[in-house]
Design a protein around this nucleic acid. Sequence first.
DNA 1: ATGGTTGACAATCAA
Length: 257
Amino acid sequence: MKIASWNVNSLNVRLPHLEQWLREAQPDVVGIQETKLADEKFPDAVLAGLGYRSVFSGQKTYNGVAILARERALDDVQMGIPGFEDEQKRAIAATVDGVRIVNLYVVNGQDVGTDKYAYKLRWLDAVHDWLAVELAAHPRLVVLGDFNIAPDDRDVHDPAVWNDTHILTSTAERDALRRLQALGLHDAFRLHHDQAGIFSWWDYRQAAFRRDLGLRIDLTLVSDALRGQAVEAGIDREPRTWERPSDHSPAWVRLEG
DNA sequence: ATGGTTGACAATCAA
């Protein structure tokens, strides 16, 4: 089962990109972030025509998450973080073929020390407690999404700039990610690749993609119970080369069996 | 260079 995460930065604009990538990559499950669509505008009929069922939690203009599953049911759908009041639609979970999928659009945080940064850390704290509950109920768990955190210096093009006081790489953010991983969640990409300089996001500004000035902030985490089944993981750069692309590329993991 | 580009939505906000 191939499981992927993609921040599309407006599903309205990127539906043709998603369609092309679904045809080419043939994922079985996809977590989408930044749909930027109210639920009544979600293109579930179009996706059904491509063989994908969908569940979604969206809002106008900002945020919005969805999970797609090819020819499989999406059961026990959870929208939002239980017990955490949040206007922003950033979390959705569902069970597919006995694998629990949690799809996160982690708060960006703007800059270290801002209100949005404090919200990011609060939000990650709530996610930690939620994932502990999810793991207890569903040992076969995949947590994926736009984490808006680069795990370590291999995941940034310039560690001198992207340092312990910079957003997406600050100490508190990386500590929060490590705390999630300490629940028993493993970065699938790092189970198979140790090289530096493989990225999933490139800023639209300064020709960052052409210069390969990126970060790896889109992750697929697999639980202890799935670790041995995560036989392959990667990031698809191609969609970032297409006309009018998202600033993110899809990250994926393949579970054997 | 407190810049730069994209998306949603119509003057800014968010990333």
